[in-house]
Every structure is written in structure tokens, then in C-alpha cells.
Amino acid sequence: MSKLEDILQQEVLAEIAEVTKAAETRAAEIVRAAQEQAEALKANRQKQLEAEHAAAVRRAESAGELVLNQARIQARGRVIDRVRAEATKALADLQAQANYGDVLVTLAEEALRGLGQAEALVVNPADAPKIEAWAKGKGLELRTDPGLRYGVRLVAAGGKSMVQNSLAERLERAWDSLSAKAAKAIWG
């Protein structure tokens, strides 16, 4: 019986070896498939992370550009405000110059051409002495208005209409065009 036992034992061992080999082969296939799946998941997740990173970088760059543009706009606004303040200061400085009376006369002549018949000339109280002779020469009553700056107002006969001609109003009317030209000169 020992031979039979040996044969059966060999057959059992061979069968165990065959089952073990098949199990090892199947386990290796499962491990390889799992590794492939893990690598695919890892590659997919890596692509997702790279896409998320690229999107975050684009958002950050966009936000940075927005902040930079806002800062540029604010800086340009401050510079244009400064240009306007300097222009207004230049008007105030003009008022102190010796030829300011000639400027008032020129403004009054222009207003008179626009109005036709006038009965009164209105100026700032500080400007009255500078244009008084011109008003008398034209036969106009000289009036003052502290709110009128850097110019004149002519009142028509009967007081129903008037024409105002001031450097401050001209600056105001032309400001959009002037500020655009100033911006172009400064920033190109």
C-alpha cells in the first residue's frame, strides 16, 4: 500500500501544485490588472490636478490683470485730476497777470457779438476795475457777481436774455477733449 499511498500522495501533491500554480497565475493577473487600473486612475487624477492647477493659474493671472488694470485706471484718474487742478490753477494765476483785463475785454467782445444789444456787463467784483473803461465805452452798466469767475456775462436790453463767456466754462465744455489729449500725450 505504500506504493499506492505514494502514487496518491504524488497525485495530490501534483494537483495541489497545479491548483497553487493556477492560483498564483490568477493572483498575478489580478495584481497586474489592479496595478494597471491604479496607474490609469493615477494618470487620470494627475491630468485632473494639472487641469485644476492650470485653471487656478489662469484665474490668478486674470485676477492679477484686473487688479493691475484697476490700479492703472486709478492712477490715470489721479493724474488727469491733477492736470485739471493745474489747469484751474493756471486760470487763477491768469487773473493776477497784467494782461488779464485784455482777456476780459476779448471775452466781452465775443459775448457782445453773440448777444447783439446789451444793457449791462456782469463780472466778478475783483475784475470790475479791469474792464470798467470798456463797459463805459460801450455804454453798458457794470454789475458784479461774486459767483462769476474768469469771465463776463452780458445782459440784453430788458434783461430777458444773456450770454456768459468765461474761461472756466470753456474749460468745462472742452474738458473731455482736453483730458483725452492729455492722456494720449502722457500714456500714448
Rank of each mutant, 00 (worst) to 15 (best):
residue 2 S to F: 13
residue 3 K to R: 14
residue 6 D to R: 14
residue 6 D to K: 11
residue 9 Q to P: 07
residue 9 Q to D: 15
residue 11 E to Q: 13
residue 13 L to Q: 11
residue 16 I to T: 04
residue 17 A to E: 10
residue 17 A to N: 10
residue 20 T to K: 15
residue 21 K to D: 11
residue 21 K to P: 02
residue 24 E to Q: 03
residue 28 A to R: 10
residue 29 E to G: 09
residue 29 E to D: 13
residue 32 R to G: 06
residue 36 E to A: 13
residue 37 Q to T: 06
residue 37 Q to F: 06
residue 37 Q to S: 06
residue 40 A to W: 11
residue 40 A to D: 13
residue 41 L to A: 10
residue 41 L to Y: 10
residue 41 L to F: 12
residue 41 L to T: 09
residue 42 K to M: 14
residue 42 K to W: 13
residue 43 A to D: 12
residue 46 Q to L: 15
residue 46 Q to F: 15
residue 46 Q to I: 14
residue 48 Q to T: 14
residue 48 Q to S: 15
residue 49 L to S: 10
residue 49 L to H: 04
residue 51 A to T: 12
residue 56 A to C: 02
residue 56 A to G: 04
residue 58 R to G: 02
residue 60 A to E: 11
residue 64 G to T: 03
residue 65 E to A: 11
residue 66 L to N: 11
residue 69 N to I: 08
residue 70 Q to H: 10
residue 70 Q to T: 08
residue 70 Q to K: 13
residue 73 I to T: 15
residue 73 I to Y: 14
residue 77 G to M: 01
residue 77 G to T: 03
residue 78 R to W: 13
residue 80 I to R: 02
residue 80 I to E: 02
residue 81 D to I: 05
residue 81 D to G: 14
residue 81 D to Y: 05
residue 81 D to F: 06
residue 82 R to C: 10
residue 82 R to W: 11
residue 86 E to S: 08
residue 90 A to R: 04
residue 90 A to Q: 04
residue 91 L to T: 03
residue 94 L to D: 14
residue 94 L to C: 11
residue 97 Q to W: 08
residue 98 A to K: 15
residue 99 N to C: 09
residue 100 Y to K: 07
residue 100 Y to H: 13
residue 102 D to M: 12
residue 104 L to Y: 05
residue 104 L to V: 09
residue 107 L to E: 01
residue 107 L to A: 00
residue 108 A to P: 03
residue 108 A to G: 02
residue 108 A to R: 02
residue 111 A to R: 00
residue 113 R to Q: 15
residue 113 R to W: 15
residue 114 G to E: 15
residue 114 G to Y: 12
residue 115 L to I: 03
residue 116 G to P: 04
residue 119 E to P: 02
residue 119 E to Y: 04
residue 120 A to G: 01
residue 126 A to N: 07
residue 126 A to K: 14
residue 128 A to S: 01
residue 129 P to V: 06
residue 130 K to G: 01
residue 134 W to Q: 07
residue 134 W to E: 03
residue 135 A to C: 02
residue 136 K to N: 09
residue 137 G to T: 01
residue 137 G to W: 03
residue 138 K to P: 01
residue 138 K to E: 08
residue 139 G to R: 10
residue 141 E to A: 13
residue 141 E to C: 03
residue 144 T to R: 00
residue 148 L to Q: 00
residue 151 G to A: 05
residue 153 R to K: 11
residue 153 R to N: 06
residue 155 V to C: 02
residue 156 A to K: 05
residue 157 A to S: 11
residue 157 A to G: 06
residue 158 G to H: 07
residue 158 G to Y: 10
residue 158 G to R: 09
residue 159 G to T: 03
residue 159 G to N: 04
residue 159 G to D: 05
residue 160 K to Q: 13
residue 160 K to P: 05
residue 160 K to T: 08
residue 162 M to G: 08
residue 165 N to Q: 06
residue 167 L to I: 04
residue 169 E to L: 09
residue 170 R to N: 03
residue 172 E to A: 14
residue 173 R to W: 06
residue 174 A to F: 05
residue 176 D to N: 12
residue 176 D to V: 10
residue 177 S to D: 07
residue 180 A to M: 08
residue 181 K to V: 00
residue 182 A to N: 00
residue 183 A to V: 10
residue 183 A to R: 10
residue 184 K to P: 01
residue 184 K to T: 06
residue 186 I to Q: 05
residue 187 W to M: 04
